[in-house]
Amino acid sequence: MTTQEALFKYTLRLGDTSLILAQRLSEWTSKGPFLEEDLALTNIALDILGQANSLLEYAAKIEGKGRSADDLAFFRNEREFYNTLLVEQPNGDYAQTILRQCFIDNFDLLFYQELAKSKDETLAAIAAKSIKEITYHVRHTSSWVDRFGNGTEESHTRIQNALNELWRFTDELFEMNEVDAVLIKEKIAVDLQILKPIWKKQIEATLQKANLKLPETVFMQTGSRNAKHTEHLGYILAEMQYLPRMHPTAKW
């Protein structure tokens, strides 16, 4: 695998994860639990969508085939997306959405702080900008995990269920393959295995504060590094991509 091929796949992984997550988050717009929180979550969705756009623009540049970020977003199929399985899961209730976001925010903060040191200037710049946004996201979602864990019996039950449901998608966040190997050698990519214990410690502290218990026997799900997804991605893409695909020559 050449550096260019690896970099393309790596950037796609980051861009796709942000894109699919933003798509999921924006399902909450106008349906939030109260107005102020509706706006807050939409803000987070907007930040992440902005990151997706920057990353996919860069991915298109790396590919060098004259495609745009929109081409990548709207004209690739299910077996060409590299987002993590966690972000394509349905939103569930607000506890599940917040918990998923908490996992991602904590991961992204650690990840982007390292990526900001990348030898690839564009990735480093995108990382630096994202850190500011994500620092705020972490604050927001951690507060809500605490509120749900220490709120009412119902909120505690809901977020415990969310934890039981989502934990099996978290190991995958740290999976590495040939793409990472090639790029770590070039000091472009981040060694995710180093981040894993740090992330785990942070999450366990957040969960403990919220009086939540990790599920006991969990079989970790995997596949997205090879673009093997859950059945959810197909539906997400069908909805997201239908209009440009229906009018392939049109400009929007």
Partner: peptide
């Protein structure tokens, strides 16, 4: 003005609502 349940939420919501 805005509604919020606690200090932290008030501050965050103010940021989202009035300084976008």
């Amino acid at each position: 003005s805005l509604h919020a349940y606690d200090k932290e939420m008030a501050l965050e919501n103010a940021r989202d609502l009035y300084t976008r």
